[in-house]
């Protein structure tokens, strides 16, 4: 491992669409999944990450590098995370939450989940469906019934414009 040679060890990660990425081991082991592979000695060649596509992996690696460059200061890390996620669209966020789960990166997982929750919070059902690509399989009657059941939760929320 890195400590003995003094030079930082680099790992090669392969996305499920066969893109290759180099990343410092010290940053990559933020992922418990990758750390376990390194500890088991499976990191010699290329580490295949079958559940993450190239675009998402590139993003995750940016995050790994960024966050590991910040010393142990929770506030600075938090503001880095906020900034990192601020310009991500929902498709990207959904991909990232999956990737973070697969890579077992709890800090990224929580940050992305919180971000998704934060935008879902005040938005209409229609908006959330559109943004997250959720297909409405309720009949209008069923939907009305569910809404009626939880009527109180719809007070003060923006109204739908499309259904």
């Amino acid at each position: 491992m890195a400590a003995e040679t003094g030079t930082p060890t680099t790992l090669t990660l392969k996305s499920n669409d066969d893109e290759l990425f180099s990343v410092a081991e010290s940053a990559a082991i933020l992922s418990v999944t990758i750390r376990n592979m390194v500890e088991d000695g499976c990191a010699g060649g290329v580490i295949p990450l079958d559940n993450v596509d190239g675009k998402t992996l590139a993003s995750v690696i940016t995050y790994m590098n960024g966050i590991s460059a910040i010393p142990a200061d929770e506030e600075k890390k938090k503001s880095y995370r906020d900034k990192f996620l601020s310009d991500k669209d929902f498709e990207t966020l959904a991909d990232m939450v999956l990737a973070a789960n697969y890579l077992n990166m709890s800090c990224l997982m929580d940050a992305v989940s919180a971000k998704i929750a934060q935008v879902m919070e005040k938005k209409s059902v229609g908006w959330v469906r559109r943004k997250f690509g959720i297909e409405n399989d309720y009949t209008p009657e069923e939907e009305a019934a569910v809404k009626e059941e939880h009527k109180w939760t719809f007070e003060g929320v923006e109204t739908d414009d499309d259904n």
Partner: peptide, 17 residues
């Protein structure tokens, strides 16, 4: 994800699908 929501926002997700 729901963890970060207040109860009423969490309940509201029942209407999604």
């Amino acid at each position: 994800i729901l963890y970060f929501l207040y109860q009423e926002a969490a309940v509201r997700t029942s209407v999604l699908s």
